[in-house]
Amino acid sequence: CKNTTSDFILLGLFKHTGPHLFLFMVMLTMAIASFMGNALMLLLIYWDPQLHIPMYFLLSQLSLMDVMLVATILPKMAADYLTGKKSISLAGCGLQIFVSITLDGGESFLLAAMSYDRYVAVCHPLQYPVLMSQELCLRMILGSWFLGAADGLMQAAATLSFPFCSTREMDHFFCEAPMLVRLACADTSVFEYVMYICCVLMLLAPLSLILTTYSLILIAVLEMHSREARQKASATCSSHLAVVGLFYGAAIFIYMRPKSYRSANHDKLVSASYTIFTPVLNPLIYSLRNSEVKGALKRWLGKCVNLNCQQT
């Protein structure tokens, strides 16, 4: 039953038909827009001194994770569709599993850190420099990356340790642990149970913190007497909640459903949402509703125009 070659076949997301070619071009355009939008957010945050505060350092890590996710999955998917070569090596499959789980897990904890930052800013504004120091911000960022990488390494190593059957076709557009486990010709029930527990800890624990902090924020906002303060707090927090809803909805659907309820087509669509659609929405959500980011963009564009005028 064990496969004699280490390569797997990714059947992909699209077929070679007119409508599917159009959808592929739309997705490729969105992927490029996602990469450029998040890269621009990184550039603005590190270039503009006015954005050198914990809130934006956390946001920069979210953009970095989205850039890495798009760079890890989309080039391979596009190359497979355009060339017709749909194979991926065991090492390549393991790398995609490790990176995707690392980024998913890291983003889960990062969103929780961002919710704590918003809680301190809204509920304890005078103590913000103390409660949300640069040192604490750095620890939150490093902790998010470390916990995500630990989960990614564990799941990638465990998934690739199984013997795989002669059927090497994966009805997906990248290697994802729940999909790869289906190809194993061994009892995977213990691993699936452990993976489920890990997902509960990696997703529901941070989500519980987020819901708790935003409940406290909501109470604080309702008690505010200034209409302008309520609007500013609501605008910032609603942007973060929109990202939280998009991310956790897709992640819970992929990793926490019972095996009997899984469908390859549904999994592919939801995976596409968190690898392509969510990363392209994140910079739009945070930039269009954030006056400080829009101000930094205007200053950066103004500086670029001035430099071009001086050179000419």
Rank of each mutant, 00 (worst) to 15 (best):
L218V: 11
V270T: 13
L136P: 00
D104A: 13
V243Y: 02
L183S: 11
I32R: 03
K15L: 08
M65V: 08
T83E: 11
Q155C: 07
V99L: 04
A79G: 09
S87T: 15
E223Y: 10
T29Q: 08
A79I: 14
Y116E: 02
S239G: 06
E169A: 15
L64K: 04
P163N: 08
S100I: 06
A242H: 04
L147R: 09
M132W: 00
A33L: 14
Q127A: 13
D104L: 03
A272P: 00
F22W: 11
P49I: 11
H16M: 08
P129E: 02
A177F: 07
L40R: 07
L110P: 00
Y261H: 06
R230C: 13
K303D: 14
V181R: 01
A251S: 12
V280F: 03
K85A: 07
I141N: 03
N282I: 13
T312K: 10
L21S: 14
M41G: 07
R227W: 10
A220S: 09
S108W: 05
V194L: 01
A149Q: 03
H20D: 15
L180C: 12
A186H: 10
L110K: 00
Y255S: 07
F174W: 13
F174M: 11
Y255P: 02
Q311S: 13
Q61W: 12
M27T: 15
M36S: 12
E228Y: 12
S226N: 15
T4F: 04
Y248H: 05
L69R: 11
I276L: 14
M179A: 15
E135W: 08
L211H: 01
R257F: 10
Y261T: 12
V130F: 05
P19V: 09
P279C: 04
I73E: 03
A150Q: 05
Q127T: 05
H124Q: 01
G92T: 08
I285G: 03
